[in-house]
């Protein structure tokens, strides 16, 4: 008995329907990749020398020297941690109103536009660029770093908070609105309970990021542990640099685990 239905089935192409175009695009990508690889110049002697330097670096890691530069390291650490905490607190405090304003479902259009533009500006400028600019304005040191991280926090938290508010369960807000509640009361009773756990989670996550970033922006002069690291590397003190990196890794891991534990606890 032969089945009246076909026995073979292939998934129809989804994006580019025309077979000729599909092949052309695939061939084009391969040709571009080959040509692009050809233009990358690799100087093998420099790679070899770099490997040697890298080896010294690894040796420094294996024998980290916490002691001889401990004062610089601990100063840098305290600076970094202060910078991280203050910038996260200030950044989140500013982000909350901006995030509420940038949520289309609860803010009027003109406020929405303003808040979205603030977010866009903050997100478009990478931390290092802002740091260079602010260091030029306010001089070397952690104040520039604090401002940089606060500014970057606004773009991050406000955007994610706004997106989160836009995805709340509308029915709950509708129910609160139908009782005759004012706008502030709707925000407080219907929106806040729905987004609060995530806002806390995001803030803890941002605390993580800010600490890591504080190490990076220190290199361009914004103070903190990054500045100490930069000094150690330019003095060829790889054992001190190794110690600093180990400390950074340790703190990031502790922050990561404790924040993910806290977030789980909050759900």
């Amino acid at each position: 008995m032969s089945a009246p239905y076909p026995t073979r089935w292939t998934r129809p192409p989804q994006i580019i329907k025309d077979r000729r175009w599909r092949i052309a695009v695939q061939v084009g990508i391969v040709i571009y990749l080959v040509l692009a690889m050809g233009t990358v110049e690799v100087n093998w002697t420099r790679v070899y020398e770099g490997l040697e330097r890298g080896q010294r670096f690894v040796m420094g890691f294996l024998q980290p020297d916490f002691a001889s530069r401990w004062r610089d390291i601990s100063n840098g650490l305290v600076e970094s941690l202060t910078m991280t905490l203050t910038s996260t607190v200030v950044g989140v405090a500013i982000s909350v109103p901006i995030g509420i304003g940038a949520a289309r479902n609860i803010a009027p259009v003109w406020i929405y536009r303003i808040c979205r533009s603030i977010i866009a500006v903050s997100r478009a400028l990478q931390e290092i660029i802002i740091a260079i600019f602010l260091v030029a304005m306010f001089g070397f040191g952690p104040f520039a770093g604090f401002l940089t991280l606060s500014f970057a926090t606004i773009g991050f938290i406000a955007k994610l908070l706004a997106d989160d508010i836009e995805e709340i369960e509308e029915a709950q807000a509708e129910a609160i609105r139908s009782t005759g509640a004012s706008w502030w009361q709707v925000v407080n009773y219907a929106v806040q309970p729905q987004v609060m756990p995530r806002l806390i989670g995001l803030s803890l996550y941002r605390l993580d990021i800010n600490f890591r970033e504080s190490a990076v922006i220190g290199i361009v002069g914004a103070g903190g542990i990054g500045a100490t690291l930069n000094t150690a590397i330019s003095r060829y003190e790889y054992d001190s640099a190794g110690a600093i990196l180990l400390i950074i890794i340790g703190i990031v891991m502790v922050a990561e685990y404790s924040s993910s534990y806290l977030r789980k606890f909050l759900q």
Binding site: A171, E174, I176, G180, A181, Y189, P193, Q194, M196, P197
Partner: peptide, 27 residues
């Protein structure tokens, strides 16, 4: 005007008491 909803539309992360009291928000 009191309103009662299909999927209850309670604010799930608030307590029962807060939900009931939210009926007084207009006052």
């Amino acid at each position: 005007i009191g309103m009662i909803f299909q999927e209850y539309a309670l604010v799930e992360r608030l307590t029962v008491m807060e939900n009931v009291l939210s009926g007084r928000l207009g006052y």
